[in-house]
Design a protein around this nucleic acid. Structure first.
Length: 822
DNA sequence: CGGAGCGGGATTTTT
DNA sequence: TCCCGCTCCG
């Protein structure tokens, strides 16, 4: 019975007068909320109000008094999702729901249960949870103990195997004999067992164990399982398409029917948004739902409240190419809106430049940067955009990883430089006074602060004075004296040494680089890399003052959450988010779909990539802009790329083909069906295009892929010949003939540029060869500045092409429009 | 302990 | 191609 004045009570009160919250739902949503009994699968397409259904359902259960808050099990994947759900339920019910102890992530709830019964699985209630690093280190020890050559059989490989087994709910004895054989001559299983034993000795569990041990507990202790089965009157699962086998087994145990009556379990998800297969998620779980839970009710949410018509049409048509799906048809009552724009760029640099321009234009038109996102397939693509935006002074934010200048190590390094440059910068001084550790802790800092306040001087000044007194302990006093001396020395060096070299000296002499080199944590290497990158980027500036000013300007503009800024993130990180304008970048074979997904997973991999594309497109409310570059640096080598097959899968009637408006002409759709509309098919004579054509043919005849002969190769025949693709192609040709308006217009613009006789120039690292000639306004000896190479002197002039001796980058040939007078 | 020399790898990421 | 991580050696 509900506690008087408790959440359930309040919820019921809030719902009086005909359940207003139900009236706000559309019929399908309402059906999903009201179907409380038995097993229910809610197939919620992108933007159809999934979270709303989930939260309303909880409120509904509470308001009907069907269960107390503590009798509802609601699981999510991320803490963020759990937090949001808590908030939203609390909002609906009138207050924050402290009373829902079983709303949380799979892992959080798993730990909670496990701690209560730790002894039953050989642990103590206070067991520690190992992170990936500890896990690897432990496995290394085990390999060592077993005398296994870690070179042939790397610890990380075994860690992945074990993770995989745990994801599939397999204990060492359950691992199929054949699978254990794949590591260290059949020792895989034995090593897994040894690892588990070692964990128990250490009273520790890794992430996989949190669920695996739960399953073991439930299986071996039926009375414990029964206790939880009785407790949880309702089970709700978010993002069901992302569950792995272990999570599925766990849910099955808790939600299995009792006495012939199916327990109340409601899973919400979208098979079309399953993008975590590589980390153990089983799309099959959602595809098989009505098989696992016989008599399950399936509710489809297909009414999309997010995107305009053209965007939704593209997303739907694209995902329709997948075979393994339950099938939903998203629809909207919104206007058709803007077509999805597909733009080609010469290379990734032009892609970034072009998108930067588009964003600036949108911004001039009053578009909020907050409502713009750039989505990439892989994080290495981000650098180019960050670089460009820093140059433009365009505020941006990297989601799912700190931005370059915000990373701790960069800020520390900058703090050193700031103190050198302006000794009164107390914040900077405070930041690094004990980084790396030099025995100047809180007490010393307090002393400095007191001194500074009393004498009204800077901390640097105070430090100078304090070492002359005996206020500090000898050890701290010595350390501070050393630091003071270092800063004096560095300031002197700053007068003679180039500032980037100074930075190297400072980072070394301060012991800062050392600190990270000695650091064993996983990201230490990345941090050192970032520091190197920082030093390199300093070359682009005249002196320390100029550099610091630039940085502080950049930092100022993106400081704080409140600043209007563009979001840059991976497609994975974008799931669940939405923006007015979305730029989808790098739609090239090999990058997207990613070659590795194809190689490792074949058709399943391709379908997951396609779902990723679907997730990407459906993030956009009003404007979806797809980009691909014709050339991209892959593994350090410039490679001519082929446009993504996903482009050919978009419905032509909903797409507008454009061309990057950078300094180079776009290279067009080399080898894509988009060329075969006849509008400019024969005008492609550039070497790049022909190379692309050859590549595409090669790929088709070879059976796909970039590599030469890596063994398990994905054969795309089934895909290229897929009837769906042909339909798309046909629809495209038809559409382009019948659409006299927008399409030919954009094509005309495209071909006009082509026909203008300009050939696509070849770019290498900002060098440009073969652009139309003209007379340069620069003369030999001029001092110039280049965005990428920094300052230099003009050594020779040839038309508009300059040979410049850069101060740091050596001699380069560059087109004059790329430099400005220094 | 640190630097040179080498081989292998090079997506996506939450807990 | 480039960068990491490991090994080997002084």
């Amino acid at each position: 019975m509900p506690i008087p004045g408790g959440i359930a009570e309040r919820a019921r009160a809030a719902a009086t007068g005909g359940s207003q919250y139900l009236n706000d739902l559309n019929p399908e949503q309402r059906e999903a909320v009201e179907a409380l009994d038995g097993a229910v699968l809610v197939l919620a397409g992108a933007g159809t109000g999934k979270t709303r259904v989930l939260t309303t359902r909880i409120a509904h259960i509470l308001s009907l008094g069907r269960a107390r808050p503590s009798e509802i099990l609601a699981v999510t994947f991320t803490n963020k999702a759990a937090r949001e759900m808590k908030e939203r339920v609390g909002h609906m019910v009138g207050q924050i729901v402290e009373g829902m102890p079983w709303l949380g992530t799979f892992h959080a709830i798993g730990v909670k249960i496990l701690r209560r019964h730790a002894e039953m699985v050989g642990l103590k209630p206070d067991f520690t949870i190992l992170d990936v690093d500890d896990q690897i280190r432990l496995i290394k020890q085990i390999l060592d103990a077993e005398g296994i050559d870690e070179k042939r059989w790397p610890a990380r490989v075994l860690a992945m195997l074990i993770d995989g087994w745990k994801n599939r709910g397999l204990t060492p004895t359950q691992v199929p004999a054949g699978e254990g054989a794949s590591f260290a001559n059949g020792k895989g299983r034995k090593l897994y067992a040894a690892f588990q034993e070692r964990l128990k000795t250490l009273n520790a569990a890794d992430f996989g164990d949190l669920l695996l041990e739960n399953i073991r507990l439930f299986r071996e202790q039926p009375e414990v399982l029964a206790q939880y089965q009785q407790r949880f009157k309702f089970i709700l699962v978010d993002e069901y398409q992302d569950t792995n086998v272990a999570q599925y087994l766990w849910l099955r145990l808790l939600g299995q029917s009792q006495g012939g009556v199916q327990k109340n379990i409601c899973c919400v998800g979208d098979d079309d948004q399953s993008i975590y297969g590589w980390r153990g998620a089983e799309v099959d779980n959602i595809l098989r739902f009505d098989h696992d839970f016989p008599g399950a009710k399936v509710v489809r949410l297909e009414r999309n409240y997010r995107s305009t018509g053209h965007i939704l049409a593209c997303a739907s048509q694209l995902i329709a190419h997948n075979q393994g799906r339950l099938g939903k048809t998203l629809r909207t009552e919104d206007v058709l809106g803007e077509k999805v724009q597909v733009t080609s760029a010469w290379d990734s640099e032009e892609e970034a430049r072009s998108i930067g321009d588009e964003i600036e234009e949108a911004q001039r038109g009053g578009h909020k940067l907050e409502q713009i996102a750039i989505l990439v397939r892989a994080s290495f693509q981000m650098r180019e955009f960050e670089d460009r935006f820093v140059t433009l002074g365009l505020p941006y934010r990297v989601i799912g990883g700190p931005r370059f200048y915000e990373r701790a190590e960069i800020r520390d390094a900058l703090a050193y430089l700031r103190v050198i440059h302006s000794p009164t910068d107390d914040l900077a001084f405070e930041r690094i006074v004990n980084v790396p550790k030099r025995g100047l802790g809180d007490a010393s800092l307090q002393c400095l602060h007191d001194h500074a306040r009393k004498k009204r001087v800077s901390l640097t000044e105070a430090a100078r004075a304090v070492v002359e007194t005996d206020e500090l302990k000898p050890k701290a006093r010595g350390a501070l004296r050393d630091l003071n001396a270092s800063f004096v020395r560095w300031r002197k060096l700053n007068e003679t040494l180039p500032h980037n070299e100074l930075a190297e000296v400072v980072l070394d002499e301060s012991g800062y680089t050392d600190m990270w080199q000695k650091d064993r944590s996983a990201d230490a290497a990345g941090r050192l890399e970032n520091l190197k990158e920082l030093v390199r980027s300093m070359q682009d500036f005249e002196n320390l003052a100029g550099f610091l000013e630039h940085i502080s300007l950049v930092m100022d503009t993106d400081k704080g959450e409140g600043v209007d800024s563009v979001s840059i993130m991976t497609l994975h990180a974008a799931k669940g988010l939405e923006f007015d304008t979305v730029f989808l970048t790098g739609w090239e074979e090999g990058l997207f779909p990613h070659q590795r997904a194809l190689d490792d997973q074949g058709r399943a991999g391709l379908e997951e990539e396609r779902r990723l594309a679907h997730v990407g497109i459906t993030r956009a409310r009003k404007h979806a802009r797809i980009y691909f570059a014709t050339n991209r640096r892959i593994h350090g080598m410039w490679t001519t790329t082929v446009p993504s097959r996903f482009l050919d899968e978009l419905p032509e009637a909903h797409v507008e083909v454009k061309e990057a408006q950078g300094a180079f002409g776009g290279a067009g759709y080399g080898g894509s069906r988009f060329d075969e509309t006849g509008a400019f098919g024969s005008s492609y004579t550039t070497p790049g295009w022909q190379r692309a054509q050859r590549n595409k043919q090669d790929i088709a005849s070879r059976g796909g892929g970039f590599g030469e002969n890596s063994a398990p190769r994905y054969v795309p025949d089934g895909v290229l010949d897929d009837p769906g693709v042909d339909e798309a192609g046909a629809a495209f040709a038809e559409g382009s003939g019948g659409q006299a308006g927008q399409k030919p217009d954009s094509l005309a613009r495209h071909s006009a540029k082509r026909g203008g006789g300009r050939r696509s120039p070849v770019t290498i690292e900002g060098e440009l060869v073969g652009k139309s000639t003209g007379v340069s306004s620069f003369a030999v000896g001029d001092r110039v500045f280049h965005q990428k190479f920094g300052n230099g002197n003009v050594a020779a002039v040839d038309g508009n092409k300059l040979t410049i001796a850069f101060d740091h980058a050596g001699e380069k040939r560059v087109v004059d429009s790329f430099v400005e007078r220094a």
